[in-house]
């Protein structure tokens, strides 16, 4: 069956979201002409498939639960913010704070992610095909961030227990973030994440970073 098609050049985002939140929505959706509009397909709670052709604005697929949202373009600030479950895939680049505070699910960014990718992540898996900007995984609490390209300044600053895997260069590590050995269990975990993201990369080419856990208790040495 053909997907339900919504043209945002003619339909307001609010009507689209209402339709996606309906008690028994269609299963497959195609959204045309997003033209940078905000909050597209946010607050979904069902295992729908939504494919968006074009660039989206802020908070696309925000707080997603169970749905599979694909953007054939770039995404603005806070894509998949606070996602709980499901999959969000961005074929292009994302702006800052991609996957911010997300608790679960899988966020795949095929291009580059800007600053603060995975900020305060709480369990989500984020796999980035390109580079990530500065302060990525800042205060990351749980989940995994995989970067196939390079990472910007202050990666993993003030990290809690999120695990970070980077293939390329890391410009600098943030406070309390350190490189850690890649053991078999990590190679296995990483291979699974790359496979889920459909990226053909060799896990052995990555390095692992995590929390040194020196900020876990207030001490005079922690002060800047």
């Amino acid at each position: 069956m053909d997907p339900m098609t919504v043209d945002l050049a003619a339909t307001p985002v609010r009507d689209l979201n209402q339709a996606l939140h309906a008690p028994e929505p269609e299963q497959r959706w195609r959204v045309r002409n997003p033209r940078g509009a905000h909050a597209i397909a946010c607050g979904l709670t069902r295992p729908l498939s939504v494919e968006i052709d074009g660039h989206v604005g802020y908070y696309c697929a925000g707080m997603n639960q169970h749905a599979a949202v694909t953007v054939n373009g770039n995404a603005g600030v806070g894509v998949a913010e606070n996602m709980m479950s499901g999959t969000v895939r961005i074929r292009g680049n994302t702006s800052q704070s991609a996957g911010a505070t997300a608790h679960g699910g899988l966020l795949v960014i095929e291009g580059d992610a800007a600053a603060r990718c995975g900020i305060s992540m709480k369990g989500v898996d984020i796999v980035v095909g390109g580079d990530v900007g500065h302060m990525s995984a800042f205060m990351g609490q749980a989940g995994r961030l995989v970067v196939c390209g390079d990472a910007g300044d202050a990666l993993g600053d003030s990290l809690y227990e999120a695990r970070l895997y980077v293939k390329g260069a890391v410009k600098s590590l943030g406070a309390d973030c350190v490189e850690k050995p890649m053991r078999d269990e990590h190679l296995t975990e990483l291979a699974g994440l790359l496979k889920a993201a459909e990226f053909d990369e060799d896990p052995a080419a990555f390095r692992r970073y995590g929390s040194a856990r020196r900020l876990y208790h207030f001490k005079i040495d922690n002060a800047y």
Binding site: H38, A39, C42, Y58, Y59, M63
Partner: peptide, 9 residues
Amino acid sequence: IKIVELREI
């Protein structure tokens, strides 16, 4: 924009 997102959700 954030407020609109919370309203949409």
